[in-house]
Design a protein around this nucleic acid. Structure first.
Lengths: 164, 164
DNA sequence: TAATTAGTTTAGTCAAGACTGAACATATTA
DNA sequence: TAATATGTTCAGTCTTGACTAAACTAATTA
C-alpha cells in the first residue's frame, strides 16, 4: 500500500481534488500553488510532507515550494514539524487552521464598517436620502461586526462536541 | 455648490475614499477600477452617474468603464437607471447590493463544505486520525452553512428597524 | 441626411506577480 | 574534510488580465 494517500487508481481523483482546492483558494486571493499545497496536505499520508516531497508530487520547483510554504506559515495555515529520524523539517496543516480563516473574516468586516463611516463623514452635510446607499452598507457591516464574534464562540463550543 | 459630492476642499478626501474602496474590494477579487466605480457611486451627488461622468471623474477610459459597469451589473452590485431628460443610461448602486454580497458568502461556504466532503471520500479507508485535518475543515464549513441563513434572516429583520 | 454625442467592441499594450533554473548556503554523513 | 542531500535566494521568464486607443455602432439633433 502506498504512502501518498491514494492508490494509483484514485491518484487521478486525488490530483483533481488538489487542483480544485487550488482554484477555491485562489478566489480568496491565495496563489494557486499555495492552494495546491494546502490541498495535498489535506489528503496525504502521512499528513506531514517535506519540501522535496511537495515539489515532486505537485510538479513544482523547490523555489516555489519554499516561497509558498513560507507564505502559508505566515498565514498560520501551515506549520513546520520535526519528524524523528528525518533530516529536515516537514510541513502539515496547522491544527485549528480553519478557525483562523474564519477569524480573519472578522477583520475584513471591521475594515468595511470603518470605511463606510469615513464615507458617511464625507456626506455629513448632505440630505438623508443621499446617505441611504452608504448607511445600508454601513449597517450590514455593523450588524456582522456585532454578531460574528458570538457566532465564532458558538462554533468553538460546537467544535468540542463534534470533533474528537 | 457643486454636484459631485464634494467641495473642492474635500475633493481630495473623496478621491482617497474612492481609492480605498478600490483597494478593499480588490482583496475580494474585484478589479481595482470596478471597486473605484463602487466607491464613487457611494458618495457622488447625484447618486446616479453616466458612463462618461465616471470616466472623467475616475480618469479612466470609456472602454474600461463600459467593461467594469457590465461586470458590476452582472454581480448585482450596480444597476442601470433611466434619468428623465437625459439621453443615455446612468448607473447607481443597486439597493440591497450589500445583502447580495453577504448572500454570496454563503455560496463559498457551501463550495468549501462540498470540497471537504470530496476529500473525505478519498480518505474513506484510512484511519480516523488521518481524516482529522479534513474533518475539521468540513465541520467549520458545515457549521457556517447551517448558521449563516439564520444570520441573514436576522439581518433582514434588523434592517427594517435600522434603515428608513 | 449630415453632424454630433454616447457607448461598445476589438486588438493590442503593459504591469504584476507566479513560477522556474541556477547559484548559493547549510547541514549531515562518510 | 570531502561528498551528498536539503532548502533558500536571486535573477529572469512567462502568463494573466486590467486597461487603453481607436474603430465601430447606435441614437439623437439639426
Amino acid at each position: 500500500m502506498d504512502k501518498d494517500g491514494s492508490g494509483s487508481r484514485s491518484h487521478f481523483e486525488a490530483m483533481h481534488f488538489v487542483e480544485d482546492v487550488g482554484l477555491l483558494l485562489e478566489r480568496q486571493g491565495i496563489p494557486r500553488m499555495a492552494g495546491r499545497i494546502i490541498g495535498w496536505l489535506l489528503i496525504c499520508d502521512p499528513p506531514h510532507q517535506s519540501a522535496s516531497q511537495l515539489a515532486q508530487v505537485l510538479g513544482a520547483s523547490k523555489a516555489s515550494i519554499s516561497t509558498m510554504t513560507r507564505l502559508l506559515i505566515e498565514m498560520s495555515l501551515v506549520e513546520q514539524v520535526g519528524v524523528p529520524g528525518q533530516r529536515r523539517d516537514h510541513f502539515h496543516i496547522k491544527p485549528g487552521a480553519w478557525d483562523e480563516v474564519m477569524r480573519e473574516t472578522l477583520d475584513e468586516i471591521v475594515l468595511g464598517r470603518q470605511l463606510a463611516d469615513r464615507g458617511l463623514e464625507l456626506l455629513e452635510r448632505k440630505p438623508a436620502e443621499l446617505k441611504q446607499r452608504l448607511r445600508e452598507a454601513r449597517e450590514v457591516y455593523a450588524f456582522f461586526e456585532e454578531e460574528y464574534p458570538a457566532l465564532l464562540e458558538r462554533w468553538e463550543k460546537t467544535r468540542k462536541k463534534t470533533l474528537r
